[in-house]
């Protein structure tokens, strides 16, 4: 079964909120709701019954002892906090064979945010790339917050990639913000800049028992290098230019790219990071579903939430 819509088509839809909803609904259509119920609430205190309270919460044992009606009050368990990290560096603006990587990342992160808020969890956003501008949306769980977050995300995506700041700084910032409270951190990046530093920071986050998922975004042209004829390549992050015959360098380039991807995958696996190599021409629904399935597989204590997993529905 083919899941999802072509990202290029999806990009033409209206606001980011709508796109996020389309993605989530597209991804989740036909799937069963989670069978886990009630485990997310915990007894907090007794309250004297007043009309309107649910009878099922009346503590009949207390009534037997004290002959008064008490109702059990439950406290919802601590919410899952999800930090979305968007690499908005200049290299993410590349879109050779599909939509630009930053747009794809925006769609994917918007869908995740939508899903998280649907689950009444908290979601925050941190965009990195341009050292001069800090884009941070603190984690909240309200619907209004979702709209704010998506608005900020849309602004970052629309502005396009800028700067060459590594996601490592943003991740360090999250480490400080989350402190001891465990969080799920979703990073969308091409990892082209200072990947070693980023990987080290990701490993540190894992060591702090945060759950980390990485969407490694690669454009199809970056994978296949389908260029021909005399070509001048210009860097997106620097003033470097290179006039070259692509045929002469293709084999060398592809070998280096394959080595880079293998290195990323291996380092992520070593660090226990949930790693997804995402081609930007694959449907966002597919990416979202892969992420959800991976989180489901990992479960509590294995990289998933301690007490709540990212649930379907």
């Amino acid at each position: 079964m083919t899941i999802g819509i072509d990202p290029a088509l999806l990009a033409r839809y209206g606001s980011l909120a709508i796109k996020a909803r389309v993605i989530v609904e597209g991804a989740l259509s036909g799937m069963h709701r989670a069978s886990v119920h009630g485990s997310s609430v915990e007894f907090a205190q007794h309250k004297e019954y007043s009309p309107g309270d649910e009878l099922r919460h009346v503590d009949w044992k207390a009534y037997a002892k004290q002959d008064r009606y008490y109702v059990k009050q439950f406290e919802q368990e601590s919410q899952l906090t999800v930090y979305l990290v968007l690499d908005a560096s200049a290299s993410m603006a590349f879109g050779g064979g599909a939509i630009p990587k930053i747009e794809y990342a925006g769609l994917a992160l918007a869908a995740i945010a939508y899903l998280v808020v649907q689950q009444q969890d908290k979601v925050g956003l941190l965009a990195c790339g341009d050292k001069q501008i800090e884009t941070f949306v603190p984690p909240r769980g309200r619907t209004n917050h979702l709209h704010d977050l998506l608005g900020v995300l849309d602004g970052v995506v629309t502005a396009g990639g800028r700067g060459d700041e590594s996601p490592a700084h943003a991740l360090q910032r999250i480490a400080e913000l989350a402190r001891r409270k465990r969080a799920l951190i979703v990073v969308a990046s091409d990892l082209f800049d200072a990947e070693d530093e980023t990987l080290a920071t990701l490993a540190r986050l894992r060591a702090q028992r945060h759950d980390v998922s990485v969407l490694h975004l690669i454009d199809p042209h970056e994978r296949a290098f389908p260029y021909d004829g005399l070509t001048q390549f210009e860097s997106l992050e620097s003033a470097h230019k290179l006039l070259v015959n692509p045929n002469a360098v293709r084999a060398d380039y592809l070998a280096r790219m394959a080595a880079f991807l293998a290195r990323c995958k291996s380092a992520m696996a070593d660090a226990g990071v949930d790693y997804h190599l995402v081609a930007t021409d694959q449907p966002v629904e597919r990416t979202l579903l892969d992420l959800i399935m991976a989180r489901s597989r990992l479960g509590p204590g294995k990289g998933g939430g301690r007490d709540r997993r990212m649930e379907v529905g």
């Binding site: 005399l230 001048q232 390549f233 210009e234 015959n245 360098v249």
Partner: peptide, 29 residues
């Protein structure tokens, strides 16, 4: 003219090309 007519591509993974640049670009030039 041929030099000016070279296709321009803004490319993210230029670092991977730059590694071979020293050899191939010099040879090409």
């Amino acid at each position: 003219i041929g030099r000016q007519r070279a296709r321009v591509v803004k490319f993210a993974a230029l670092d991977f090309l730059m590694a071979t640049k020293r050899r191939t670009a010099r040879k090409f030039r």
